[in-house]
Nucleic acid binder design. Structure first.
Lengths: 228, 228
DNA sequence: ATTTGCCAACCTGTATGCAGCTATGGAATG
DNA sequence: CATTCCATAGCTGCATACAGGTTGGCAAAT
């Protein structure tokens, strides 16, 4: 399982290679909670792992800090940021709006491609049932995000959509374990609904479907927090 | 005129000092078109100017590239990105939506502060009439942006609002010269309208006012492009 | 005169040494 | 035994040397 070989870039401008690979790898680890909030990352340690010097690692860490995923303090190290409940609420509220906005900038010609991806994901989700494989589930979500992201014709919205997907995902995954079956079922519904919308060529509907399922997830997280 | 001494940071997390100063300075120069699109920036040259080594300069340039304001190519240098008409249209369309969204997350307690800022800006705008001082005009817009930005209670929206303000501004300023008086008049109206909205405590109105004036600017730019 | 190939100057990407800062543990003192 | 101080190890921030890549110009051959 080569984790750095994630799918191709959805953004217009492709950043540099090596640093970007490290960046994506670390970002994914953070979002997967393999690097939990509060964990301290050492530049030397990472440099050793990736078989490079500290310089490219530092660049990747600086991007992560710019994304708000980490925080670097002089003399201490780079630590994964915690999940501030306020920021969490803000991000979710914002993502709801972004999804609603999606239909206003539909990339019609991407619909067939997205549809074929959805069909693939449906199969993979079926194969995933009962396995409780968090990372595979996450990877599936990740690809769903990419597929829907490509349906947005507006570059600015697309970038923002992506940016806050990653900010939200790691919060979201902290409560997956408690609701794994529900999440699977929910994702299956989402895929089915999106499939229908794509067959009808209704990209605006895709946005609303996504919005609703984000809201479902939000509700789930909220109830989990009040329960704890 | 110390240009690096721009107002305090509106974001929640304050990045490091030295690099951020360089970053802001360069960003402002790009947005002011003092560094026009296509201009090639050398790391060594900038390092000499800021009296630091290449390392912090590189960090700042990488942030700029991440913002989409520059593009660095190996063996060549860092060049200011051009204003792709498509990206321009996307950014503007997106900003309209963001401004409309502003009223949904009002920071009520910031209203008095914003009002006093607006009153200050009104005075300064009056003093600016007939001077045709682009940079002063830009600085004024910049502070207006900060004031309205603080009225947004949602951190994610606030960050995005800021991000695309800078992306849009440099495009916008390329056509100011042809419409300077109109822009002054327009800005005066905007300030007056915002003043009224703030006195009424209607932050949602502030968002719509901003949206409308963005649309005016967009129309102006569009007509300028068709004219040329 | 035109074209082609090469070389040298310059730029970014990377590695590494050094300085400054922080936290932790132990020793000394009350 | 508790507390305070300090030394030390380890980390990041910065500077710099070196490697790899690109471009433009000059020279040579056609």
């Amino acid at each position: 399982m080569n984790e750095s070989a994630t799918s191709e870039n959805s953004r217009t401008r492709a950043p540099r290679g090596q640093v970007t690979d490290i960046y994506r790898t670390l970002r994914d680890r953070i979002c997967l909670l393999r690097y939990p909030p509060g964990m301290l990352l050492g530049e030397h340690e990472l440099a050793e792992e990736f078989a490079v010097s500290r310089t490219p690692v530092r660049q990747a860490l600086q991007r992560l800090e710019y994304d708000g995923l980490t925080e670097t303090r002089n003399g201490v190290g780079t630590m994964v940021t915690g999940v501030d409940p306020n920021a969490f609420r803000d991000i979710y509220a914002f993502r709801l709006r972004l999804s609603e906005m999606m239909g206003e900038f539909p990339a019609e010609d991407e619909a067939p491609r997205a549809l074929s991806t959805i069909l693939l994901l449906q199969d993979r989700l079926v194969a995933l049932r009962g396995q409780r494989d968090m990372e595979a589930f996450w990877q599936l979500n990740h690809e769903l995000h990419h597929a829907t992201n490509r349906l947005i014709a507006n570059l600015a919205l697309r970038e923002t959509h992506e940016r806050y997907y990653f900010q939200a995902s790691r919060i979201w995954y902290s409560v997956i374990e408690a609701f794994f079956e529900e999440q699977i079922t929910d994702l299956a519904s989402e895929l089915n609904e999106i499939e229908g919308a794509l067959r009808a060529g209704d990209i605006r509907a895709v946005g609303y479907i996504q919005r609703n399922h984000i809201a479902f997830g939000l509700h789930r997280v909220a109830s989990a927090h009040t329960a704890v």
